[in-house]
Design a protein around this nucleic acid. Structure first.
Lengths: 136, 136
DNA sequence: TTAAAATACTTACCTGGGTAACTATAGCGG
DNA sequence: CCGCTATAGTTACCCAGGTAAGTATTTTAA
């Protein structure tokens, strides 16, 4: 019983990530990169620390994801007044391309949810949020 | 809105996997290995193909997980009549140790769910199953 | 019967996330 | 001021899962 709960959650998560990666493929982006780009687009400039805390990811994977984005020219690292910190922000290139990416992701999400009623979506989000808050 | 749904699902999945890995650490096992051991314990002998289909995992990761289990002596590969196939089954060692592993996992799951009402668990499982079936 | 297609598994390489250990800078207490 | 500790980020190395390509065997079809 419990087993099924964990199993379906795991499967769902994998499916969603895979589909998102498919949707981003034409742009040479991956899901983890997208999550960083999305946050930067809404929040502006953040340190890597702030980014990894916001996305609940450890520092090392964040470093890697950012390095790839830097290499692709979508993000730049700006040394902070505190020289240990690096502020990350979107490049002009990224700002220009962002709407295309966002559109592709939105399309993808709509496809994923098209046969799943909105009431169920809300319920699911709610249940997940409650549980997650208890775990953290 | 949609964004939150995907985000919390992803976070939840990671949290659960991390906790399970912690619980299995004393036995030198990891979550993916446990899922294979669990299936073999309930279903008996299966080919790698059957295993990966049952767990919705591609063949290559399954090969790796099995190779690690073989190295640890918890699983053996038996050539099938069709020489392309390999039947996988638990070793005596694994059968002997299984109850301990299962106990640790059960404990872990109870901890994870202890503040999450059973009615919510059922609802969540249900919503997830419905959605997942639509996606596959 | 034998050449081509399908199948089971493996190998190599990629992203995603984790820990441990390291570097460099910042902040403190003596 | 100086040394200790804390912090931001990086590096190296794990596991988990994905695709593409390769190998060996079986099936199919000419």
């Amino acid at each position: 019983m419990t087993h099924e709960l964990f199993h379906t959650l795991h499967q769902l998560s994998r499916q969603l990530t895979n589909r998102l990666n498919d949707a981003l493929k034409p742009f040479g982006l991956y899901s983890a990169q997208w999550s960083v780009l999305f946050v930067l687009h809404t929040k502006g400039s953040l340190t890597q620390k702030e980014l990894s805390e916001y996305l609940f990811v450890e520092a090392p994977p964040m470093t890697r994801t950012i390095q790839r984005l830097v290499k692709q020219g979508y993000v730049k690292q700006i040394p902070g007044k505190d020289k240990r910190e690096k502020y990350i922000q979107l490049t002009e290139e990224a700002v220009k391309e962002f709407p295309k990416w966002e559109h592709a992701v939105t399309q993808c999400n709509q496809t994923l949810l098209k046969n799943f009623p909105e009431s169920s979506q809300l319920e699911l989000t709610n249940l997940q949020s409650v549980w997650l808050k208890q775990l953290l």
